[in-house]
Each structure stands twice: as C-alpha cells, then as structure tokens.
Nucleic acid binder design. Sequence first.
DNA 1: CTGTTAGCGCTTTCAC
DNA 2: GTGAAAGCGCTAACAG
Lengths: 339, 339
Amino acid sequence: MKHDKNVTIADVAKHAGISKSTVSQYLNKRFEYMGEETKQRIRQSIAALGYSPNVLARSLKQKKTFTIGMIVANILHGFSTQVIRTVEDACNEQDIHVIVCNTDEDPQKEQKYVQMLEAKQVDGFIIFPAGDNEELYRELLDKNIPLVFVDRIVPDLPVNTVLTDNEKAAAMAVDYFTNCGHRRIGLAVPPLKRVMTPRSERLSGFQKAMESHELEKSGMFIYEQSLSAMADYLSAEFQKEDKPTALLASNDLTLIEVLQFCRQQEMEIGRDVSIISIDDMPLAGVYNPAVTSIEQPAAAIGEKAAELLFEEMNEGKELSPAVHRYSPVFLERDSVETR
Amino acid sequence: MKHDKNVTIADVAKHAGISKSTVSQYLNKRFEYMGEETKQRIRQSIAALGYSPNVLARSLKQKKTFTIGMIVANILHGFSTQVIRTVEDACNEQDIHVIVCNTDEDPQKEQKYVQMLEAKQVDGFIIFPAGDNEELYRELLDKNIPLVFVDRIVPDLPVNTVLTDNEKAAAMAVDYFTNCGHRRIGLAVPPLKRVMTPRSERLSGFQKAMESHELEKSGMFIYEQSLSAMADYLSAEFQKEDKPTALLASNDLTLIEVLQFCRQQEMEIGRDVSIISIDDMPLAGVYNPAVTSIEQPAAAIGEKAAELLFEEMNEGKELSPAVHRYSPVFLERDSVETR
DNA sequence: CTGTTAGCGCTTTCAC
DNA sequence: GTGAAAGCGCTAACAG
C-alpha cells in the first residue's frame, strides 16, 4: 500500500478532453500559441483531479533533477552547519533541493556518497573535501559534473574553491595579542594530518604573523594535539616555566578543550591567560568573560559556493576556476587582557 | 554540456552479448538461475564501460525513490541538528537519502516543501510540525504516505510522534532546585503561541512540579517573553524585591539570553541566581560555572523516528500510531547553589 | 537460465 | 494551436 493517488498527465488530458502534450506544454509554461480556453480547462482539470506532476519522470527525460549534493567532512563544526544553511537558502530560491551527506572525514564514505548521488543524477556537487580522493574528483570533472569545493583546497585540480582567509584569521589574532602587549603566544591546533587546509593555513598564518613581530624565536608555542588529549596536554605544558600568556584556539572544537583546560587548572581567563578563538560559538559571546572570537564568513562562503555552482550548472562552466577567500570577522570581547 | 557519460544498461547488455533484462536481474541481485559465466561477463562489461545505474529510471518504475524528506521547524536549535544527524545515520545504513528542509516555523514554507518533496516522490516524511497545517498532514495520510512527527504533537491526527518527555524535564529541574533549598523559582520561556508542544509542556510540567512542592502560590515566577527582549525583561524583573533565587531556561536559545542577562546585571551564577537549562549546549559544560543542564535524548528520538518511518515504509503501517516520549538526561554541574 | 515485451510519467519533435 | 508518436533508462512478467 503505497502512494495511491496516481493522477498522471494522461488523466488530466482526458479530463480536459485534450492531449497529453498540450497539458505538458501548459505545465512547462509554453503558452505561446495556447488558447485561453484550453489553459482554463487544463487549470480546472488539474485542480479537480488534484494532479501534481511527477518530477522523477520529468527528470528522467530532461536529464536534470533540480537537486544538488552537498558533502561535508565534519558536520560537528558549527561552520559546516552554517554554510549548509546558506546554501540551502540559496537553492530554495531556485526550487533546487539539497541532499546533505556527512563523511566524518572518511574518504571511503565520501566516495560512496558521491557515487550514490551521481546515481541519483544530482545536477552538481558542493563538497568539503575529506581529502585523498583526487581520482574521484577528477572523474566528476571528466564527466563534466558541476563541482565546487568549500573550506579545503585540493591541489592541482581546476575546481572553484571558496573558503575563509585562514592565514588572515590567525594573523588577526596574533596582531591583536601583540597590540595588547603579549610577547609569548600559543596556538592550540588539532593534528595536521592530510590536506586540512584551514588547520595548516592557520598554523602558517600564525607563524608568519609571529615572525613579522619577531616573536617566532622564543615567544611562539605550538600545541598540536588531538582534541581528546588537548586539555590534559595543555595542563601539562602550562606547568612549565616557559609558557605563553596568550592562547589562540584554532577552531570551535579546540576552544571547548581550551576552556576545559582553563577550568581544570583554575586559570582565570584574562588574568592568567588571554584567549582568542577562531570560530564563534553560540555561547562564546556570553561566556565569562566573553570570548574574543574570529568568525568565519560562513554566509558569504555559502552564497558564493552556491552562486559558482549555479553558474557551472547553467552556463557551460569553463569560467576558469579560482580560489575565493573571504575575510573573517574580528569580534572583540573580553578574553584578552592588556599587559 | 551535461553529464555526458550515458552508459546505459543496454550498452552493458550489448557489450556482454546478452539481453538487458539479464543485466537488470544481475543488478538487482536476482542470481537464482544465473550462470556463473554470465555473471562474470556482466561484471566485466560493467567495469569496462564504467557503467553506473540510473536510479531515477529505476525509481520511476519501482515507485520508490529511496529518499525521505525531513522537515524541521527551527534548525537553529541544536536539538534539531542532532536529530537530523541521527536520522541520517540510520538512513545511510539502508542506503536511503535524506532531503532536509527548514521551515523557520512558517506553515506556508512547510506546505511548499511538503509539496515539492511529494513531487519528488519521496518515500516518507519526518516532520517537526510548524503547526497549523493539519489539512496538509491529513492529505499525506490519505495518500498513505509514511509520516512521523518529531518534537511536536498535532492533536487528533493518527501519526506516530516521538519527542522528549518535556514535563519530566521541567520537573527534574524543579525537583533539583527544591532539593537544593530553593523556594522561589523562575521559568524563562519564549512566547507560547500556537502548538509548541515542548514549550507548553515544559511550562505545565514546571507548574505541576511547583504545585507538588506547594510553591505555586508565591514561589513561582514565569517569564514569558520573546528571545530578543528576554534579557532586558529579566533585568527589569530582577530589580524587584519579589524575585526568584533560581531560574530555569526552557531551551538552548533561552539559555543564551539568560546568561546574557546575568552578564549585563553582573550577577554571579550560583551565588546570585542558580541556573538550570533544558537543552545542553556545546559550551555549557565548560562555562563558568558549568551550567547544569537537562539534555534532550536526541539520538534516541532520531533513531526511533527513523525506525517508525521504516516500519511504515516496509510493512503496510497501520501499527496504531502512538506518542513516544523519551526521558531527558540530567547533567549535574555547578550552576546551582544550595541555600 | 535468458530474452521479449510492455510500460513507469513525462517531454518533445513534427505533422496536422 | 494541438495531437501522435517515440523514447528517457530501467524493471517485471512471461515466454522460451
């Protein structure tokens, strides 16, 4: 017992006493030579029968599904959610649907999803690459399937990519810290395995900025550690004499661990250690003290990604793919103290 | 220029020197009487041609799309995101796709999405009802389309519904507060317009629990206010002599406002006012002090919703719909002080 | 065990 | 202006 209501275009045609093709014309708004009366009759029949077109059949014929696939690597990041949200809004305006898949950073899963979505004939992809799937992406390209990357750069692939200016984000933090008189600054960052553009760029941005302030020698502390071990690791490191007065959390998940570390060490934020976070979290602004944060421009990124994808879907693409970087936003709050 | 690679089942058949239907059998794993050699040849041809089946055509024929629609009222709640996540996981195990739509509590939008998804022939719906669309739901029911509600009850509709035991959540908070010696307790809740099951149940649960402690007369404070005005409203109310010593935030978004209020009034959580939140937020556990929270069982709810939907999709449903409530989880932390 | 034959519901020339 | 007919890629009887 499934969807029984099978009113097809044929039923409408019969009811209206005309042919299927005319009804089809009507549905596709090809009114050019259609009699006013015909239109009228069709409209009535449709209403009377409660007809609604079967998009599947149309898609089969037109080879267009009005659906795109969106593949995110880690939906736990607030950033991903926000980008998804924006992309969906953009798509809804065009009556395009979005199927979202989460790969948990697993290239295998990513491959499976891409193939499933391809089989579903999606019209395009927006992907946060999990990495290590270059061949897969290349196939997509070969098949001429519209594709946009978000958040991470896959080297040597001619694909439009849109992401935060991560180096700038890190530099903003460093500059702010130094302006407040800090000369010993740490970076808490999860492990840098594989192509994790944001992480590695934030690290390099951090290093460059430190160099520009001539702090790279003895003032720079890099805490690279898995999230689950981060708090303990920081606790241990901060027992040492040689430690920073300011700490940059490289993303939202890291911030949680940094805050955890402060709690367990009973360190007062500001007095004992100044904090900045890349990524703004819902409670960061009302934290005690409010956490100075660098917000990724998720809306701009999502919009741009959608826009680029639409272009590829409509125009035949070949608009020479590029990397599009958007500046983060500095949210000055109270977690940095001047010394 | 679109997906060019159109290797069809016919190409495979030709290449393998057999007929389409045999290939189709193979694809559908109906191996019963199929010669080992035939299978072999098919396998090779598929690989050679890089064939991948067109799910659309299959769906058109089978009247099954292996896709479900999920419609959430407010994706800004962490709870929605978590439920989505769980449902997606459950679906992925069955190779079912999920299309997620966000209605922003707008019944109009909800209607539009339902219709779009219907046109796409989704196999079922999981809906967080925005409310006021009874007729729409009834149509779905009439058409025998599998449907499960989450988070909100739509009265008088025979639909499986799964949600948090909201009254219990509120009672948990009240009981804990009173155990800690609080006799004057407030509830901050957004406006109760329309059918917002969680809100109204949390309110009624709060009231009932207060009554059971004989606090409903002079110890109960209900702050019903829109989120944007909440912080200021609380600030004004707490100027009065007659105010509570403990405050329950009815959901995550409300907690943000409550915390905001504490900040702007420079009230120390615990000493000046004890706080509990329904919904656990990422930073709540590392807040200063950590915010005692009542977590909704999102995973259980998502799993159950998916399970119920699958049942309806497979068995012919008619399993006498019911309301399924799941108990929230009390996370004792440090934002409540004994008096 | 494999092939033939109809469609699924819609679009799209191309006649009339 | 409208209709007839072919077919999108696949599945599902039913023969053989």
